[in-house]
Design a protein around this nucleic acid. Structure first.
Lengths: 239, 239
DNA sequence: TGGTGTGAACAACTTCACAGCG
DNA sequence: CGCTGTGAAGTTGTTCACACCA
């Protein structure tokens, strides 16, 4: 129920996952879905799903379930997905280029409007049709004249902190960071990290504690693990 | 302290982050570090860091701090990083190719040993020096003769579930999944998802609740958000 | 009847605060 | 004296269980 209750961070993440599955259902022409079914396809507990929705209102019909397209729209509004979001790619390396080609973004209303780098080798090169790599120092000007909502940072570890400072300086308030560092940013800037090696390390931990161990803690760890599979973690910001 | 206590999932993730920073310190020649310093560079609370370590033993010296290389090695062992991990790339598209080129993996002891796809167009093509795309149906055989520890799946949403079933069938116990679906796997298989659009959606939520809203819940949401920045989430496995 | 919505119980995780020790 | 290690307190998030209603 809307009100004074705090919304768990994890709830927002799950909302996005529900929303994605609801879009599939819409395409298939399904028009009603129960919390049990939606929950099973998104690997959550049905009560969890209902609780997540209850933070924002009452969207279902008792004894029936949820109207697929109505619920989908409500979540779209909650997440702020009714508008198109303009993104700047920062860092025109391997990963950056692959992200530019990635179809998934466009499909969701995310649009790359420019690419930046500070390597003179790369500047001026055409990175995809109608998009040329710009010098990073022009980020602020571009931001003022054309508007950027989000920065997708695929730069080297070494440069990540200084680059994010330029991004913040330019007035961008949301960052998706692919560099393997925890960035320091002001409290009004949101950062999400995409951190491949950290995730791989959790996999190796899981696999190692299976085969190796006879220590007490590893056995426990393994037991714990088999129930718990994919992740987020809430990380405070002490910048 | 090692024993019967359950180890939080989030602890493992942070261990990986501490470890990465410790390696930097080692390279710089720093040999002692306090929980306060290490915590500040990894955006966690110092007590949190000490608690995380305490699940596995007592690694510090009171009044002094932690020996950098000793602690680094201990964490390396805990996470299972003393061995080299063989990975198979599954899906030779944009993202897959970029991951193959990605330097970060090799540096950490993760090694791509083969690439698979089931698109006949791609099979047989050289994807990098000394590596040719193999037919997905040969995955099981390759696994038996050469061994694969982890699968990195960069396949389409549509095929992801059927592909992961072949991966599981082949006997692989750890999967890093880039497809935007929650996969169903047996309880002894560990999966981590790299989910760009979900992370973007959390950013748009954060930004929308700043500018848009006068609703009661959004204001609350914003307040919550400004403290909480980057994420994991614990997701149960109901497969 | 069957599935939602939700307070209350529970479980997990984080932070505090200080004892203990080099 | 200073920083670690950790029980206990506090906070946040999840699940139960059932009232409620189309």
């Amino acid at each position: 129920m809307p009100g004074k209750t705090k919304i768990p961070a994890a709830t927002i993440l799950r909302l996005s996952i529900y929303h994605r599955y609801l879009k599939n259902l819409e395409e298939d022409g399904t028009d009603v879905v129960s919390s049990a079914e939606l929950a099973s396809h998104t690997n959550v507990n049905p009560a969890q799903l209902r609780k997540d929705l209850s933070y924002f209102g009452r969207f279902g019909v008792r004894g029936v379930g949820y109207d697929v397209s109505k619920l989908s729209n409500r979540i779209r509004v909650i997440l702020g997905l009714e508008k198109e979001w303009n993104m700047a790619l920062i860092g025109a390396g391997n990963i950056g280029k692959a992200l530019l080609q990635h179809k998934q973004f466009e499909a969701q209303g995310y649009r790359f409007v420019a690419a930046f780098d500070h390597d003179p080798e790369k500047i001026g090169k055409k990175i995809r049709q109608g998009m040329v790599v710009r010098p990073l120092k022009n980020l602020g000007r571009f931001m003022r004249t054309r508007g950027i909502d989000l920065a997708v940072m695929a730069v080297s570890t070494r440069h990540a902190q200084e680059v994010v400072e330029q991004v913040v300086e330019a007035g961008i308030k949301g960052v998706l960071n692919f560099a393997p560092v925890r960035l320091k940013v002001p409290g009004d800037v949101a950062v999400q990290n995409v951190d491949f090696t950290v995730l791989l390390d959790t996999l190796t931990y899981a696999l190692s504690t299976v085969s190796v161990s006879r220590d007490s803690y590893s056995l426990e760890a393994k037991k714990n693990w088999s129930r718990i599979h994919s992740w987020p973690i809430t990380e405070a910001n002490y910048a």
